[in-house]
Amino acid sequence: MKAGVGPVAPFDTDPLRRRDWLVGAGALGLGGLGLLAAPGSAWAGRQVEEPLADSVRSVLSAAIANSAPPVPDFSDTEKRLSHLRWLGAMSDRLKKKKPDFQTRIEFLQTVWYETRRAGLDTTMVLGLIQVESAFRKFAISRVGARGYMQIMPFWSRLIGDGDPSRLFNMQTNLRFGCVILRHYLDRERGDTYLALGRYNGSRGRPEYPNAVYAAARNWIHPDA
């Protein structure tokens, strides 16, 4: 996969809009790694199951079925070096949450790949994962949402093979989460605030989007 390939949301390409949500997050003063992701917390369990048009279901299912491995392919040396700088910096920041080096690198590589595949902002998605699961692979909410991005089991029936146990697989969970968030962004015409609210099941309320924006500040990097 070529770096950067895929649909890109407006907040990802417009530096002013991206700056605005990062600055706004900073104003909340909620940036600590442990503050927003206490053990046992889960937000996305309030996702609402809703009917999907056949065309939408087909697109989402096709995105999930594409099992290309998360191996980046760069068009030039500078892009590769930029990625390696980002990977090293993120690995250092994530060390307390994921002490094993290989596990940490595989997780970050997969997040990087899946966010670009879905046209999402990697920094924001890392913030979302921090809020949702505190980077715990086997996190389960009180209503059964699972894994890093707290995917509700009904999604495995709607756009997967119906086996919710697969939601604990790292790549499966991150791919479902990114595809679902991309779907919500498309529904909200690129409005990150509303898409995050829909992902959480609290569309229009500020608590969850603000929490994600604040957590995302922990993952800002010039090479992101």
Results as ranks from 00 to 15, higher is better:
residue 110 T to M: 11
residue 91 S to I: 01
residue 57 R to W: 00
residue 114 E to N: 15
residue 100 D to M: 12
residue 117 R to G: 00
residue 38 A to H: 07
residue 96 K to G: 04
residue 71 V to K: 07
residue 69 P to V: 03
residue 66 N to H: 07
residue 83 H to P: 09
residue 82 S to E: 05
residue 75 S to G: 07
residue 80 R to K: 14
residue 112 W to C: 06
residue 60 L to D: 09
residue 92 D to L: 14
residue 116 R to D: 09
residue 78 E to K: 13
residue 43 W to E: 08
residue 103 T to R: 15
residue 99 P to Q: 01
residue 53 A to C: 01
residue 70 P to W: 09
residue 50 E to T: 14
residue 36 L to S: 02
residue 83 H to Q: 02
residue 53 A to I: 01
residue 95 K to F: 01
residue 83 H to E: 06
residue 130 Q to F: 06
residue 110 T to L: 04
residue 62 A to L: 02
residue 74 F to E: 01
residue 116 R to Y: 08
residue 47 Q to D: 13
residue 102 Q to W: 00
residue 45 G to F: 05
residue 82 S to A: 12
residue 126 L to W: 06
residue 98 K to S: 00
residue 100 D to F: 07
residue 105 I to R: 12
residue 61 S to Q: 11
residue 48 V to G: 05
residue 107 F to A: 04
residue 105 I to K: 15
residue 99 P to T: 02
residue 40 G to R: 15
residue 100 D to N: 11
residue 62 A to C: 03
residue 103 T to K: 06
residue 36 L to E: 00
residue 93 R to L: 08
residue 42 A to S: 08
residue 37 A to N: 10
residue 68 A to P: 02
residue 74 F to L: 00
residue 129 I to V: 15
residue 73 D to R: 12
residue 55 S to Y: 00
residue 75 S to P: 01
residue 89 A to K: 13
residue 83 H to K: 14
residue 84 L to G: 10
residue 42 A to I: 05
residue 86 W to C: 07
residue 73 D to G: 01
residue 112 W to F: 04
residue 127 G to M: 03
residue 64 I to G: 00
residue 81 L to A: 11
residue 85 R to M: 04
residue 37 A to R: 08
residue 64 I to A: 00
residue 66 N to Q: 14
residue 131 V to S: 04
residue 58 S to E: 14
residue 83 H to M: 11
residue 48 V to A: 03
residue 108 L to K: 07
residue 37 A to G: 14
residue 95 K to Y: 09
residue 87 L to Q: 10
residue 95 K to A: 07
residue 59 V to W: 00
residue 48 V to M: 09
residue 53 A to P: 03
residue 76 D to E: 03
residue 118 A to H: 05
residue 51 P to Q: 01
residue 93 R to G: 01
residue 78 E to V: 08
residue 39 P to L: 15
residue 34 G to Q: 14
residue 40 G to V: 10
residue 115 T to K: 06
residue 86 W to T: 03
residue 66 N to G: 04
residue 42 A to F: 03
residue 81 L to G: 06
residue 116 R to S: 10
residue 131 V to C: 09
residue 54 D to N: 12
residue 84 L to Q: 14
residue 83 H to G: 11
residue 81 L to F: 10
residue 86 W to M: 01
residue 109 Q to N: 09
residue 106 E to H: 13
residue 101 F to Y: 09
residue 72 P to L: 11
residue 117 R to P: 03
residue 100 D to V: 12
residue 47 Q to H: 09
residue 108 L to G: 11
residue 56 V to H: 07
residue 75 S to F: 02
residue 65 A to W: 04
residue 39 P to H: 11
residue 126 L to Q: 09
residue 83 H to R: 15
residue 118 A to N: 06
residue 82 S to Q: 12
residue 59 V to C: 13
residue 95 K to W: 04
residue 127 G to Y: 02
residue 130 Q to A: 08
